[in-house]
Design a binder for these strands. Structure first.
Length: 561
RNA sequence: UGGGCCGUCGCCAAGCGGUAAGGCACCUGGUUUUGAUCCAGACAUGCGCAGGUUCGAAUCCUGCCGGCCCAGCCA
């Protein structure tokens, strides 16, 4: 089963599971879960967690549940639930049985709360929010007991029952676990486990007006589902003692093991649902699926493949050390995938007309080009060569910089998949702008090298007669700062938005075969990058492509400015 | 200054007492009708620092230093 030479080193969570399995824990079962709160769209950081949890389940022949952690109804919605489901499926994962909701367990969780009260381990608090905070103490000073901490079990049961019945206003009472107000771990200083919220819940409607808090809900939900390994991010590490306290106190039939790993940080972007939502709400981007967003929906629209994201998540590893992954790794991953999978096509972004003088007016040659230079199974396509064609303005220079190997006056260049042409004359308008090139073709260079000379440059081109118009959206990083999140110098997120994160090219000329482009199917536009038809392209008469990522480019690095 | 966690190449990351994997980036060559891909090579005498244990330490011990998380009726 294992490949000795190339075995990818195991990360620490895999090692824990392997050890558990070898010791016969959990009856040899592995059950994980991915537990998003439906209060926003999933982002690349969630993708890491999804790949980890579902991947572990697959690897160890176990199961992974998709469970919505929906205990805070005022921030959650059905829209987010649907988006999250779609994203998980698109990434290529299948959840075990039906989707779960923490809200499915509200009755059971409530019973457990009553049990805790009966055991004298929970009490109804009458202190105000501010008072609770004061009593909690600080990082360095212990807290002090609430005057209500020793209410009788009977009184607590009565009060909690009346909270549930809606007799009290929001904010007046809460249920607290009775643990230790002097604990060095602030999470153990009698944490609130139930609060009153008189709002409708997207799943349970108006059935409840009290809702359990995360710390009380999550561990119980895990236990109910028989989760064996409850994998979460580092910020929950200090909550683990509480997770264990709740389950131990309740004596739940199963007691999952919480394991924390470092969440993903990517430079030049943010992975915070709250801040992503801010960009959407303030109109900085067009929506959660704006191709500049690091959301799964945004990446999908941008042209990223599920496989490239999965591969990226494999590449970055799983550890407990906080790091910042270079965006270049994500870009490598998508280029690596698309180089193999994307058929090639030609599209001229900044058209410059070229007239082939030694070709007859109205003549049209049909040429066949392979869809992929190395993969013949991808077949071929037809392109047309006509007297008038377009090349990119950047592929001609009146005054060429050193090392330039594209077209210059009196020079030759290879038209990709076509003839070698020579530039005979530059035509300019009254203002001195180059508007046309007059060239001649060498008829003896189709599919063969020219005689007695070397032609170094190859440029892409398109027939002016048969090409189709296209709009191309060129995306760049959304932020100019490596760490947009850091508020140093009073700088905010909005201060570091990249003004050039979206540049639209309106007059692009694409080879005719591209009219058949469909949403989600990637292309490599030769010498430019990878592109995909935008999902709202149908709103436009022309083709609309998003640039997923550029090709690796060693020219702009050495090109003089 | 309380509690928890983390420091191995520019970035990610193996390593689990026997003498520093791999990937990304960068650099050098080669192939190439994409300045792409591909191929070959180069890239930490060193593992936050300082001591100690040991024949032997990135791995064990001690002490420092640096970073992250926790004081929501958010998750």
């Amino acid at each position: 089963m294992s490949t000795p030479e190339k075995a990818t080193p195991s990360h620490f969570i895999r090692q824990i599971i392997q050890k558990d399995l070898s010791e016969g824990k959990n009856s040899g079962q592995v059950a994980t879960r991915f537990p998003p709160e439906p209060n926003g769209y999933l982002h690349i950081g969630h993708a890491k967690s999804i790949c980890l949890n579902f991947g572990l389940a697959t690897e160890f022949d176990g199961t992974c549940n998709l469970r919505f952690d929906d205990t805070n109804p005022e921030k959650e919605s059905e829209e987010y639930i649907n988006a999250i489901k779609a994203d998980v499926e698109w990434l290529g994962f299948e959840w075990n049985d039906d989707i779960r909701y923490a809200s499915n367990y509200f009755s059971k969780i409530h019973e457990y709360a009553v049990q805790l009260i009966e055991q004298g381990q929970a009490y109804v608090e009458s202190l105000s929010v501010d008072e609770i905070r004061e009593y909690r103490g600080t990082l360095t000073e212990p807290g002090k007991d609430s005057p209500y901490r020793n209410r009788s079990v009977e009184e607590n049961i009565d009060l909690f029952q009346r909270m549930k019945a809606g007799e009290f206003d929001e904010g007046t009472l809460v249920l607290r676990a009775k643990i230790d107000m002097s604990s060095g771990n602030i999470n153990m200083r009698d944490p609130v486990i139930y609060r009153i919220r008189k709002v409708e819940h997207h799943q349970t409607g108006n059935e409840w007006c009290i809702y359990p808090m995360y710390d009380f809900t999550h561990c119980i939900s895990d236990a109910i589902e028989g989760i064996t390994h409850s994998v979460c991010t580092l910020e929950f590490e200090a909550h683990r003692p509480l997770y264990d306290w709740v389950l131990d106190s309740l004596g739940t039939p199963s007691h999952p093991q919480q394991i924390e790993f470092a969440r993903l940080n990517l430079n030049y972007t943010i992975t915070s649902k709250r801040k992503l939502k801010q960009l959407v709400d303030e109109g900085v981007v067009s929506g959660w699926d704006d191709p500049r967003m690091p959301t799964v929906a945004g990446l999908r629209r941008r042209g990223y493949s599920p496989g490239s994201i999965r591969n990226f998540c494999e590449m970055i590893g799983v550890t407990k050390s906080d790091g910042v992954v270079d965006m270049g790794m994500l870009e490598f991953s998508i280029r690596d995938d698309l180089d193999k999978s994307a058929p090639r096509a030609m599209c001229v972004l900044r058209p410059l007309k070229v007239v082939i003088e030694n070709m007859e007016e109205g003549a049209k040659e049909t040429l066949s080009m392979s869809a992929h230079p190395k993969d013949e199974s991808m077949g071929s396509r037809e392109i047309h060569f006509t007297r008038e064609i377009y090349i990119d303005r950047d592929d001609f220079a009146e005054v060429p910089p050193p090392k330039y190997k594209r077209l210059i006056e009196g020079g030759e260049v290879r038209l990709r998949g076509c003839y070698v042409i020579k530039c005979q004359e530059i035509i300019k308008d009254a203002d001195g702008n180059i508007i046309e090139l007059r060239c001649t073709r060498d008829i003896d260079t189709l599919g063969k090298k020219p005689e007695g000379r070397k032609v170094k440059g190859v440029v892409h081109w398109v027939s002016a007669e048969t090409c189709v118009d296209a709009e191309i959206r060129m995306y760049d990083r959304l932020f100019t700062a490596e760490n947009p999140d850091s508020n140093k110098d009073g700088r905010t997120l909005l201060d570091v938005i990249n003004p050039e994160s979206l540049t639209v090219f309106h007059n692009c000329k694409a080879e005719s075969g591209l009219v058949g482009a469909v949403v989600g199917k990637p292309y490599q536009f030769e010498r430019e990058g990878y592109f995909v038809l935008d999902s709202d392209a149908h709103k436009s008469k022309n083709l609309v492509f998003n640039r997923t990522v550029t090709l690796r480019d060693s020219w702009t690095k050495i090109a003089p400015k």
